[in-house]
Computed example of a mutant assay.
Amino acid sequence: MVQNLMVWLLERRVVLSERAERLRKQLADVEAEVARLEMAEIVYRQYQEDADAGHPDAAAWEQALEEATGGAPAVPAQSAGATPGAAGQLLFGPRGSESRIEDLPADYRAIMEVVVGGGGPLQAKDVARELGLDLLPAKVEPVRGKLRKLAERGWITRTSAGRYLPR
């Protein structure tokens, strides 16, 4: 009887461990899809703002939307005026032992300074407020995207509640 119970316990633990691993993979897939949709929303809002201002560049916005939603990658422009971040280049890399906040581009550096000086977990809207931005989705979402990039590359920590802390 005791041996049968032990066998059942071990089998049950293996089954649940395998199920947990499948669920982790599904969650990662769902989170990746949510991130793609968030990026598409940001690109669409920017397009709408540009169109409302009367100067949309439809081809450029279609290309940006396709990239944000995981479509075919855009062909990089062959121009001498290419800037960091264009054509898939990283503006900054993963945080290493030698990395400093001063190595970040100015807008990311400003966000880092707010998070470091925040005194606790901050939401994207808290960071936007500290940066003096309006709390409109069109202003907060780009900040949220930058916070996510900083977290993905190890510069800050993102909590499960979507708040950000210094590392």
Rank of each mutant, 00 (worst) to 15 (best):
A80K: 10
K146N: 14
A60K: 05
R129T: 07
M6G: 03
Q123I: 01
E11I: 11
R167L: 13
E33H: 10
D126G: 12
W61V: 02
Q78K: 09
E98K: 00
R36S: 12
E31K: 07
G162P: 03
G54W: 05
R95V: 01
L147P: 05
L10Q: 04
L16F: 09
V127H: 08
E18R: 15
A35R: 14
R167T: 12
L9R: 04
A35I: 02
Q78S: 04
F92K: 00
W8Y: 11
P84E: 02
R163A: 06
Q46E: 14
R22Y: 12
T157F: 09
I156K: 04
E152P: 00
G145H: 12
Q48S: 05
A151W: 11
E49Q: 11
I156F: 06
P105A: 06
R109G: 05
D29I: 13
E38P: 03
L104F: 01
V127C: 03
V2Q: 12
R129N: 10
E113P: 00
G120Y: 01
L150Y: 09
V116S: 01
V30F: 08
P121F: 01
A77L: 06
A138M: 09
M1G: 15
E62R: 14
A161P: 00
E21G: 08
E130D: 14
G119W: 03
D57S: 04
P166F: 01
R45F: 07
V116F: 00
E130K: 08
P142Q: 02
L37H: 10
T159K: 02
G145K: 08
I101A: 04
S97K: 07
A77H: 03
G54F: 05
L165G: 00
I42K: 10
R22V: 13
S97L: 07
D134R: 07
P137L: 00
L5Q: 15
R100L: 03
Y164M: 10
D103F: 02
M6T: 09
A74L: 09
Q89K: 12
A106P: 04
R144K: 12
A80I: 10
G96C: 00
K139G: 00
L147M: 09
P121C: 06
L23Q: 13
A74R: 13
L10R: 13
R167S: 11
G117D: 02
R153G: 03
A40P: 05
W155S: 02
P73A: 12
D29A: 15
D52G: 10
R153V: 11
A110D: 14
P137I: 01
I111V: 14
L135T: 09
D52L: 04
P105N: 05
G71N: 06
E41W: 05
L133D: 05
E141S: 11
P73E: 14
E141H: 11
I156V: 05
A72R: 12
L131T: 04
A60W: 08
L23P: 08
W61G: 01
E130M: 08
A161N: 09
V2C: 07
V114P: 02
D134K: 01
A124F: 09
A106Q: 10
R109I: 05
T83N: 11
E152L: 12
E11D: 15
A86S: 15
P142T: 06
G81D: 14
A68Y: 10
G88A: 15
P121S: 12
D50Q: 14
